[in-house]
Design a protein around this nucleic acid. Structure first.
Lengths: 259, 259
DNA sequence: TCATTATGATCGATTTAGATTGATTTTGAT
DNA sequence: ATCAAAATCAATCTAAATCGATCATAATGA
């Protein structure tokens, strides 16, 4: 048989599989094969053994972890990779929310992950224009203030003059916002002018503006201009973001966190 | 059949469905299909499994969460007599909405029927604190203004100081409101004090207050007092309402319509 | 050399998902 | 109330992915 350059010992490999399943809650045979550079037959045999040992539960196409109930990805079609990055970004954001603070969440998918993390917190106030965040947080820990206005179905958010009128009356310590695109030249952009305007109003009434945007949004420019970088206090993204971004932004006094 | 490049594992997908249903209380097959990017057949099979597992309750068109299964108001028994009466009441109410008018709808089931009838109208403005009415009317004919505030899950409405602050700023020609109970002695009553207060604010800022309440609500008294009869301009109910009600109310200058 | 073990490859069997079709339910109009 | 149109459902069929079983090959140690 053609052995590999660095063949992991079998128990070592099974440990690895066990970890992968436990961490992400679910793993596909095909992904494990690519990850461990072995054949699907081997993966299957390993999974069989791990199941006998009660460490994973096999399902068609892969395996799921025994202990943790699958925490599902909240949003649409995002690949698991992008979704994991968003989750990591949200986790970093969560650590920034101090006691007794009030925060704003916009209607992005990353902020929805953050909303989920904030569910347990009883000491904070969450202001949002996202219907999904509102539903997620309703009747749970934080006090939730939902902006009214007009409903924008495609993003499941409230926008328009009434929303902004409300937002002008509340002050938040930290505003967490997603975006459709950001680049050094044009700043933050998004698809809908109404959303853009709303974000601008929020930014003006927030102690800190923290941008949550995975690296796929870098150098993307969308239709409606939200703001320039001087409004932003911090960017939370991921490692795949181009180096010159980080460098330039830090030079401009914007903190950059890359989990 | 062309399978997707990275299809989510079946249990993962079912968990997402379960969560989507749990969070919003109800989910349509079509919405789930769009969200998860799979065929309706798959959604149905998943819902079937989830129902067997006791995680959701299937209904025509989708599924509802087990929690909301307990409260009837979220999904109506369309065949019931009460439901038909509500529809009739809503139809009468619809004829009262003139061109270019602005109206308020509260979170009752009868007003939801009215919302459906108003979908075609392009000339009017609808103000509501009902999430379901908002979703019903979004992206259709009327201009929709949704009050913010805090979410009351059981009634799927927004309540609290922020809602009322918004409502104080808009004036409506006609306010259509449901109620849990009305009687000659105690006036209009409902279950939640916050809801009651909100209705009171609306009534003060409305040209006309029109009460939509089928006869089953007659002589019922609930916990929170909304208002006295002198705030009400018209009652739309049904034939089964006791005669002395009609007589007394008309004597007090309140119009009564019984379809 | 030969047995043992781990792995990879192959092939029919099974499972899953998508599409189609006719039945059923709901909705709107008369 | 009755009817027709639309939406939704359940059942069935097909294609693809996945699986399990089997066999072949290579490394290892007796």
């Amino acid at each position: 048989m053609i052995q590999e350059a660095h063949p992991a010992l079998a128990p070592e490999r099974r440990d690895r599989i066990h970890d992968l399943v436990r961490v992400s809650g679910v793993a596909r045979v095909e992904d494990l094969r690519r990850n461990l550079k072995v054949s699907v037959a081997t993966i299957r045999r390993d999974l069989e053994i791990l199941e006998e040992e009660g460490k994973v539960k096999r399902v068609h196409g892969g395996a799921v972890s025994m202990e943790s109930r699958l925490e599902e990805s909240v949003f649409d079609d995002k690949t698991s990779q992008a979704s994991k990055q968003k989750k990591k970004i949200a986790q970093v954001a969560h650590t920034l929310v101090g006691q007794e603070e009030s925060v704003f969440l916009d209607g992005g998918s990353t902020t929805l992950f953050l909303a989920r993390l904030l569910k347990q917190r009883t000491d904070i106030t969450v202001v949002t224009n996202s219907v999904r965040a509102m539903e997620e947080l309703a009747d749970s820990g934080p006090r939730v203030i939902f902006t009214g206005g007009e409903f924008r179905r495609i993003s499941q958010t409230m926008v328009g003059p009434l929303s902004t009128a409300v937002l002008e009356q509340v002050r938040v310590d930290k505003a967490f916002m997603g975006t459709m695109g950001f680049c050094l030249k044009n700043g933050i952009t998004t698809t809908d002018p109404n959303e853009a305007y709303l974000k601008r109003v929020v930014a003006e009434n927030a102690g800190q503006v923290i941008l949550l945007a995975d690296s796929t949004k870098a150098d993307k420019v969308s239709f409606a201009r939200v703001s320039d970088w001087d409004q932003v206090d911090m960017l939370i993204s991921d490692q795949a973001i181009p180096k010159h971004f980080t460098k330039t932004l830090r030079k401009r006094g914007i903190k950059v966190r890359l989990p």
